[in-house]
Write a protein that binds this DNA or RNA. Sequence first.
DNA 1: AATATCCGTATTTTT
DNA 2: TACGGATATT
Length: 683
Amino acid sequence: MAAAYTGERMFSWLDDLNPEQRQAVEHREGPLLIVAGAGSGKTRTLASRVARLVGEGATPERILLLTFSRRAAREMLQRATRLTGDPRTSRVAGGTFHAVANRVLRQHGTAVGLDPAFTILDATDTSELLSVLRHDLGLGERGRRFPRKDTVSSIYSRMVNSQVPLVPVLDRWFPWCRHEADDLRRVFAAYTDRKRQHGVLDYDDLLLYWRALAQSAEVGSLLAEQFEHVLVDEYQDTNAVQADILVGLCTAAGNICAVGDDAQAIYGFRAASPEHMLAFPEHFPGTTIVTLDRNYRSTTPILVAANAIIAGAEKGFSKQLWSDRPGSQRPELTACHDETAQADLVCDRVLEHRERGVALRDMAVLFRTGHHAATVEVELARRNIPFVKYGGLKFLEASHVKDVLALLRILDNPSDELAWHRVLGLLEGVGPATIRKLLAHFGDDPLGRFLDPAALPLPEASADDAAALRAALTDCRDVPDDPPPAVQVERLAIFLGPIIDRRYDAAAARRTDLEELTSLAAAFPSRSRLLSDLTLDPPSSTSDLAGSPHLDDDYLTLSTIHSAKGGEWKVVHLIHASDGNIPSDMALSEPAGLEEERRLLYVALTRARDTLYVTYPQRYFHRRHGLDDAHTYGQPSRFLTGALGCFERSRPSPESGFGSSAHSTSVVEADPVGAFLGDLLSG
DNA sequence: AATATCCGTATTTTT
DNA sequence: TACGGATATT
């Protein structure tokens, strides 16, 4: 085995590459930008490039591969390892910007005044902390309508990641909060202070500190030298801070290689912008650009439709995808009677393809938002069709799961006041005022003070709970080493059991979740790894949660379009392709939002290899369980109406699906003209 | 001071 | 509709 990567295999990374891909793999000196259209063999090209670097003697540890998700990094490195046949290839440093930042900061954080034992706040924690601060500062009282916590959090993140000052951020994206600029500034200042005091970082801080490190005089050059080669995937979805980090990291060597497709930029809401990709040649002088526009994935009719959709966009790097896969079928656009009929139709088609020999694994149902899948999920379950849903999953945001994580965080970083806040609030008879007293009492040694029962300012009612908590925390600590993470979770779950029963509904389901969390924890070597990995790379699908035994089984994929990025399936069903969903009504406040929705549709369509079905319900019912059937009419996405010629139009037979007969009694026609047009367009 | 209740409103995508 | 947040009650 060890000798396998000599001789002929040496060049295997050039096998099966077209001339442009080959150029990208072999390019040597200076920055390289690969403009890679959908399905153009981007992953193969990047993996081959890594393989070539390792094969030619580069030290794997000194190659940095930044990807959009951990899964993408893993797949790419597996592929590269297969190409080199050299197991050392898997030692390439890979992961998301945030995950790499976490690693770098644990190692070098002290150079920018950071305690390397920091814990990481997820989006919910961040909002929570902002909410506490807002209250502390006495805002939002006396009927004042100060922006709510999630809005405050969005404003902050937008400001940081786009590097635009507060006032212009408010003007452009949050005009209704404009007059609150001064108080927002106070909240943000307090927020920054508080985080620093308690050794916690939010997602944005990870990037900010990494950038500070990359730009610092002492450590910066050290970091730049650490990585001989830097490869970045999905460059169109980078934000300004990430672009800065790369500039800091790559000045000296210039060995940066970025891959992206500006037509697939869909993370504007996270302050990512394809602008950074367009500006790449200016950031990195001497850039060579290679364009991959040959599509290996889809049939020509599918590409024609996708190209027609994206043709309306203002372009950066122009490219027209082409394929030599002819294909006789145009994608099919179907107006369904309502959501139920749509779910029925999707299931019918899935079963039909399966009977013709297409595995469920080779099919996917895509949608704009998580809840769009609900009706389909019900119907799939009813027909016993196994599926896994990606995106829109909120396992870690469920309050009982957050309770466990807060307990772990206390053990990991006892000065994490936010975690204490949550945990203490669980105790019977303890509310905001008692918590404040306790935190004041804690001083420099919160855990020590809490574990010492004497002199704790606790009310009588909390005595039992407090004792149980003390026991649970003690159980999780041992000399010389703490018990394994799974054991800790198990013990904490015992403490939480009665509290869950008392405080939350659906207690049984929640207890099951904790069991899943326990088996999930078994995969981690330490508590701190469990915590940071879970926050930086949360389970992205129902199957990522432990306890799902069907990994070998055949199952259908359900996914948000965002989570489907990079994926491909033989048969793709895009559902809810109606105006208001794609584009989402909420994206319409500014023109850039609309364009992003167009690209979102483009991403969805280009996931399909052989067969593409697009559906939308014509009627949306307002109250699913109401006595009347008040509804509004859906029209096809405005992006589709300009490209109808690229689609086969069909309408399912009226008998299929429920509610298709005319039993409407008290119909509310919110948009009669639209309904009229909708009927014309679908007839 | 903690908890129960009521009212109004926003409502997506994810590291 | 579900959730966040303020007010009323114990």
